[in-house]
Design a protein around this nucleic acid. Structure first.
Lengths: 150, 150
DNA sequence: TTGAAATCAATGTAACAACATATTTTGTTG
DNA sequence: CAACAAAATATGTTGTTACATTGATTTCAA
């Protein structure tokens, strides 16, 4: 459905204005889908994001700093997200011996298994994106990159 | 900067996976920019969104339902957003005489003036989007629409 | 016409986000 | 080495979001 119909706004001031609205709306829509799917696994999309970062590091530990650097939403509080994952037993946390200001965080076996189970579904979650051809996806990635500035 | 560098992830499983991440990241980045700019006017981006919907209706009133239908984030609580705008004197609210379950909400003179002042800046806020040509913006709007499914 | 169902908005609540501040440890410089 | 700055993380606070529930009004059907 065209964005004009989704939010019942018959016309926009410009193609650019429309793009801003469309971008916000679509991203919100997409995130909501993912959030919904993750509910089954009792994870928020941010927790999922962190968990995947930790898997990417495994078997090396990650610090809070490293996690923050790689998160999609850099303002959110990695400390407290890790707390949540810790109480679920999905990560281990201990203070780094070399620099006791830092903490070393590692994904646990349980965390890896959870991710593996989720992996079986992620292809489906990307289905909406597959309405674009691979060339179009590449082009859109390029557009998005340029949009955030050279 | 390419998304790989932004979140320091050297490669993605597929162009589609990358697109999902890029979409989330860029939209978040864009919203954060707008949020920052709106701070000067003491509005959140959602309040701004509602205010513009009300201007679109003017001089007709809008109900909470109508606002919700047109909002970008349809899950957020239009009731409470209107509350906020009310205490700032940017909107008027009274129960609809024809159907006393509904409430009629209208943007005030003060609200219109605020929007007018903000209008002077919105072109600048769209600057990132203007790194795309008009054709590219149109194409991208099409991609986004398709992505949300025919 | 009256009672159940539907509609519209408001509210309660738990979790989360944004931002500022505090705490602990390390680095630096006179 | 002492004192101060910087770095890394944690915590406090205030406001917001998501979702469920409630309360009021209208609609509709028996």
């Amino acid at each position: 459905m065209k964005i004009e119909d989704e939010i019942k706004q018959p016309k926009f001031q410009s193609e650019y204005h429309k793009l801003g609205v469309n971008l916000a709306f679509t991203a919100n829509w997409f995130d909501r889908q993912i959030t919904q799917k993750l509910k089954e696994f009792k994870l928020t999309s941010q927790q999922f994001n962190v968990l995947r970062i930790l898997r990417g590091q495994y078997p090396n530990p990650a610090t809070i700093n490293l996690i923050t650097e790689r998160m999609l939403d850099k303002m959110s509080n990695a400390s407290r997200l890790v707390d949540k994952l810790l109480t679920k037993g999905l990560v281990d946390r201990k203070t780094c011996p070399e620099d006791r200001r830092q903490v070393d965080i590692i994904i646990t076996e349980k965390g890896q298994e959870l991710l593996k189970k989720i992996d079986e579904h992620t292809k489906d979650w990307e289905a909406p994106l597959m309405t674009l051809s691979k060339q179009e996806a590449t082009l859109m990635n390029d557009f998005l990159d340029r949009m955030r500035g050279n």
